[in-house]
Amino acid sequence: MNEESRLRGIVLDVVTIAVLALVLLPIIWVFIASIRPDADIMTRSLIPARITFDHFANIFARADFLVALRNSLIVGAIVAICTVLIAIPAAYSLSRFTYLGRDFIGFLILATQMLPAVAVLVPIVVIIRSLGMANTLTALTFTHLALGLPIAVWMLKGYIDAVPRELEEASIIDGSSQIGAMFRITLPLIRPAVVAVGTFAFVLSWGEFILALALITSAEVKTLPLALQTLFDPYSFSWGVVMAGGVVIAAPTIVLFLLFRNQLVGGLTAGGIKG
C-alpha cells in the first residue's frame, strides 16, 4: 500500500512536469528563439543546435531600443516609488484609525482596481491631450500609478493590521508621536511587503501596453512594449531579434516574480477576489 502510493506520487510528479512543460511551451519557445541564429529558427525544432547572442547584441545596439529601455526604467522606477510613498500612509490610515468615511474611502480605492484600463481609456486620452500632455512621460507615469496603487494599499493594510498596536503604543508612551511610531516601529516590520508592493508596481508599469499605445506616439518617449512593435520592421525583421526584445521585457518580470512570489500571490488573490 505504502509502496504503491509512493509510486503513484512519482508518476504524478512526472506527469506534472510534462504538463507544466507543455503549458509553458510558448514561453520556453520565446526564450529559445532569442538565442539561436535566424537560419536555425527556420527549422522549427525545439532543441537549439547552435547558440548565439547576436540578437541581444543587435537590439542593444539600436538607439531606439535603448531610449525605450531608459524610458521604461524611469517610468517604472517613479511609479514604484510614488506607489509606495502614497500607499504606506493610506494603508496606515485605513488600518489604524476609525473615522467618518473610512469604509467608503477604502471601497473607492479598491474599486479603481476593478476598473479595467480600457474602461477609462477614452476620457483619459481626451483629458491628457487637452492638457497638452500627450507624448510626455509625466502623463504616462501618472496613469500608471493607478495600476498598482489600489492593490498596494490593500496589501499593506493587511500587513499593518497584523502588527500589534501595543508595539506602537509602547513607543508613544516613550514619547514619540503616532507618525513617529509608524516610522520607527511599524514600517521596519512591514518592509518586505513594502518592497514587494513597489516591485509589483514596477512590473505592472514595465509591461503596460494600452495606455502607452494611446498616449505615446513620438519615438523619444516610447516605452519598451511600444519599441517591441517597432522591431517588427515589415521589410527586414528577424524573429530572433523580436524574441530577444520580448525576453528583455519578460526577464525582470520573471525574476522579480520568482523573488517575491509569496507576496505577489497574496496580492493577486486580494486584488482579484476582494471587493
Binding site: I17, W29, G207, V247, F257
Partner: peptide, 29 residues
C-alpha cells in the same frame, strides 16, 4: 510534493508576463 509546489509557482508565468511578449511569442509560433 516539492515538484507540485514548484509547478504551482511556475504555472503563474503566463498570468504575470506582459501581453506584448506573449502576443508576439504566439504570433511567432
Amino acid at each position: 510534493t516539492t515538484i507540485a509546489r514548484m509547478a504551482s509557482a511556475l504555472i503563474l508565468l503566463p498570468w504575470v508576463m506582459p501581453f506584448i511578449v506573449l502576443g508576439y511569442g504566439w504570433r511567432f509560433l
